[in-house]
């Protein structure tokens, strides 16, 4: 199981949960599993979201592998200047 940490205010879309454990090998599988557990997350996941895996930031990268012991954080979509 991968432990997925949500940022503070994302909890309101996930029944108040701060983290969710899912079975997943990739970011895409992780998103799918998150949506199944917490349908409130689906529109947010669909709108584009950033994922930090072991401190490294991934945008729009479905097939990046996630390990069970990876540290995973969901973060809002980020854009720079």
């Amino acid at each position: 199981m991968v432990k997925v940490n949500l940022w503070g205010s994302l909890k309101s879309a996930a029944s108040g949960r701060a983290s969710i454990d899912v079975e997943a090998q990739t970011i895409r599988q992780m998103f799918r599993a998150l949506g199944e557990q917490e349908p409130g997350l689906v529109p947010i996941l669909d709108s584009g979201i950033t994922v930090a895996i072991d401190g490294q930031i991934y945008r729009d990268d479905w097939f990046k592998e996630v390990d069970d012991d990876s540290e995973v954080y969901l973060l809002p979509r980020m854009e720079g200047g």
Partner: peptide, 9 residues
């Protein structure tokens, strides 16, 4: 642990 969540590299 960083202010935005994950641990710093």
């Amino acid at each position: 642990q960083s202010s935005y969540g994950p641990k710093h590299r």
